[in-house]
Nucleic acid binder design. Structure first.
Lengths: 137, 137
DNA sequence: CTTGACCTTCCAGCGCACTGGAAGGTCTAC
DNA sequence: GTAGACCTTCCAGTGCGCTGGAAGGTCAAG
């Protein structure tokens, strides 16, 4: 199948598929006499896998590492499990961070509600965002 | 004060300060006869403000909009409040998204724990990540 | 006069995952 | 034979917030 067919079958663009080849995620396929890429049916599986793995939050570099294990004949389960766990803790970390940012922003919003646009025009650029004096509630 | 002093006073690098000037966040300061940038003391306040605003999650483009309101003599409180509220809802959105991703990854981790590396080597690249058959718990 | 700290400009690159466009080749249908 | 659908390669750009480096100018101390 040609790259356009593969694009339709996988839901990606031809650009993206060529990019994946260049990035080492897709092997270079054989060519037709005219120089067109000629993909086997399994290419769809591989692209679908890449999409699924991306959906799970893996980066292309990580996906490449899984695929190259696979390509060397090994079962990538261990690596995949490791990556999933890594991303889980990364997400936990980001959740904690985001919650902290949310609390900080809520504090600022409270301060903003109390701020008089008339008073705020002294010297400072904006008293809402200056972390100086948030009075203890 | 010269750019190095300002850098020390604000905790940024000279590179960053020049970048802010180029990006329209800092006004071009007067120059010494030798061509050096010569900052007034208020520059520290401005840079501190930029850092605080960044700490609140505002982008440089948003901070620029606040600063240019200020520079045109208006109180930017309204704009600032608006931006804070915007970022709050953006964060809520991301929290929801992240929690969903976490649940998805937890499902995958469960599946990974059940996967036998011997069995997984058939045709597919990795059965853990294929969203096909997650059995109802 | 020289050293060395500091400054200037300009150009280029990072990381990530693409995306756009130009210039040209190939194949099928009419 | 020609339109047009598809393909090829290559180069360059996106967004964001810087960061690095080269090549050169300025200034105070010794």
């Amino acid at each position: 199948m040609r790259i356009g067919d593969l694009a339709r079958a996988s839901g990606l663009t031809t650009k993206t598929i060529r990019y994946y080849e260049q990035a080492g995620l897709m092997p270079a396929p054989p060519r037709t006499p005219g120089g067109y890429r000629d993909y086997p049916a399994e290419a769809v599986t591989r692209l679908t896998f890449i999409r699924d793995a991306q959906g799970a939050g893996l980066t292309l570099a990580e996906i490449r590492s899984v695929l190259s294990l696979r390509d060397s004949g090994q079962a990538p389960c261990g690596r995949v499990t490791e990556l999933i766990d890594q991303h889980l803790s990364e997400i936990e970390r980001r959740l904690v961070e985001l919650r902290a940012t949310r609390e900080a922003l809520r504090g600022l919003a409270r301060r903003a509600a109390r701020t008089d646009p008339g008073t705020c025009s002294q010297g400072d650029i904006c008293t809402i965002l200056t972390p100086a004096a948030e009075p203890r509630p």
